[in-house]
Amino acid sequence: MVDISEELIATLKKKAVTLRKHIIRMTHNAQSGHPGGSMSAADIVTALYFHVLRVDPKNPTWPDRDRFVLSKGHACPVWYAALAERGFFPVEELLTFRKLNSRLQGHPELGTTPGVENAAGAEGQGLSFSVGLALAARMDHKPWRVYCILGDGEQDVGQTWEAAMASSKYGLDNLTAFIDRNGIQQEGRTEDIMPLEPLAEKWEAFNWHVLTIDGHDFRQILAAIEEAHRTKGRPTAVISRTVKGKGVSFMENKIKYHGAATSDDELKLALAELEAQEAAI
């Protein structure tokens, strides 16, 4: 079992609340964007950026950095928030999200935003892109690893499964995929739109090492990453059970907040809830 201190968990929990507050403010300020799926992924992104990833904010293109790929590009508010908090660019810049002339595009753009590693928006391309990165690392005998977050809506996309096959063909044990299993996509519940279950069995059938965790439990997230690192000869898929809109009671599990910002009144309520959570840690 991984040795994880209470102190580390508390630090990560606080950071995740900070990211959620940024997500709420950014999408409110833009009056558009995708808060729900950003908040469901916030704990995984926090664990990666504030404990796992070897990255250098002062040298974002350091060749030996670990690669983080966000396949579900609409969740970029959580990515931008993590990058800003990690020091890749000023936190104040977050409020330019989705505005004209901003470096923080509505969906990620490679080459514009320091720390962003891929372009995404059209779903289902990120895992394939991660396969290319992982193949390159292996070819060059480099130790850096690739972490990709996919949405569960993206499990509808055929290319996701093309990438799943290629990953196991090449035994990419330097690739870890988190599936943000929040159960909701743009127009409804995933099981109504296009049933995915049994999802873990699907990934197992594609010859991945599969773990199912609570995607809001830092001990489980970090343990899964440790297990992925120990797993040889196969990529690891971490099916992370999450709550869309996690952290704000009136947003949780609401289809509406896939792609809707809060109103002025909702903003105050949401921030008050998050600040209360922060104080309780």
Partner: peptide, 15 residues
């Protein structure tokens, strides 16, 4: 699986 092929090429190029 040509979409995958193109994205894999992009990932290789990104590295």
């Amino acid at each position: 699986a040509e979409p995958n092929m193109i994205s894999v090429a992009a990932g290789l190029a990104a590295a």
